[in-house]
């Protein structure tokens, strides 16, 4: 590390592109969205009038708002928990010195590589009536018909597709975490009588994976709040708004209803929710880490 003052100029030069781009395309828009959320604007006219928190009131008063929040909460919880749980299960399986483990890793990571658009379209076809899932469920005597066109199954179906796509990514993160656990701990545990798989997992593996879980939870939360393309191509927010989540609603407010003030208020809401959750997670996990050490 070189700390002489004459290098400060060089540091400024090296940082200039990244700093300017981040300022223009991240911090300026952040400030702008906060400013816009207390103004009324239809997206076209040059007039942006200050309205205080009126846009937030309008947003909350919309009859659809409660449904949007419900969908967002269900979607986030419904994707984060299963994709982490399945990802962890896959990692534990793929970490065992058994045949097929490389195939398992490759196949379960593959869905992460395809785009949400491709995966979404493929799942629309597989969930259509007479499609793959209709056939498979038919074996059990259930005939759901079209899974995407049905308000009671659409959200669950999008969640299933999202989980299929993200579980392999979480597996990779957990596999990296499993590598950091020294084998000696299991040997020491075995001497203390910790021999069966479940006890080993509960007392050694899971606590040792704490840092991985911390990171996996945060990144999955961030990803789930962002999910737009899957919903756009699979359901268009429908049927009867049953899959309209906050990010979909923001787009709809701005580009379909030309209600930019409300869209900005909704963006601000999303910003606050994500920030509060992330900071909350960081505080929760760091406190836990301190308590243990």
């Amino acid at each position: 590390m070189v700390g002489r003052r004459r290098l400060w100029g060089w540091a400024a030069l090296f940082l200039a592109p990244a700093v300017i781009l981040t300022a223009v395309f991240f911090y300026y828009p952040m400030g702008y969205i906060l400013w816009l959320s207390v103004h009324h604007w239809n997206g076209l006219s040059p007039i942006k009038s200050f309205t205080g928190f009126a846009e937030f009131h309008h947003l909350v008063d919309e009859s659809i708002f409660g449904l949007v929040i419900r969908n967002t909460v269900l979607f986030v919880i419904g994707t984060v928990i299963p994709s982490i749980a399945i990802g962890l299960g896959l990692a534990l399986l793929a970490n065992r010195p058994l045949p097929l483990r490389n195939l398992l890793r490759g196949i379960s990571f593959a869905p992460y590589l395809v785009s949400f658009v491709s995966a979404g379209l493929a799942w629309v076809w597989m969930g259509s009536s007479g499609g793959l899932f209709d056939h498979l469920l038919g074996v059990f005597g259930v005939h759901p018909g079209n899974l995407v066109d049905n308000p009671s199954t659409a959200l669950i179906y999008v969640i299933a597709m999202y989980t299929w796509k993200m579980a392999g990514y979480n597996m990779v993160l957990y596999l990296a975490g499993l590598q950091t656990i020294p084998h000696e701990i299991y040997e020491a545990g075995a001497i203390d009588g910790l021999k069966d798989g479940w006890t080993q997992f509960r007392t050694i593996t899971w606590p040792m994976l704490r840092n991985s879980t911390f990171f996996v939870v945060i990144i999955n939360l961030v990803f789930s709040f962002r999910a737009f393309s899957a919903i756009y191509v699979m359901t268009n927010g429908g049927p009867v708004n049953s899959t309209t989540t906050l990010v979909y609603y923001i787009w709809n407010l701005a580009f379909v209803q030309n209600s930019w003030g409300q869209a900005a208020a909704a963006s601000t809401l999303l910003l606050i929710v994500v920030l509060v959750l992330t900071v909350g997670m960081v505080r929760y996990f760091t406190k836990e880490v301190f308590r243990i050490s």
Binding site: L7, T22, F25, Y32, L270, V274
Partner: peptide
């Protein structure tokens, strides 16, 4: 590799951008 004032804050300022969904800042952009 270069020690200058505000280094740590700048790094945090970059990494913070990873958390915020693109949809939040998409409208102003």
């Amino acid at each position: 590799r270069i020690r200058f004032p505000g280094r740590q804050a700048l790094f945090v300022g970059f990494v913070a951008t990873l958390i915020i969904p693109f949809q939040v800042i998409a409208l102003p952009i």
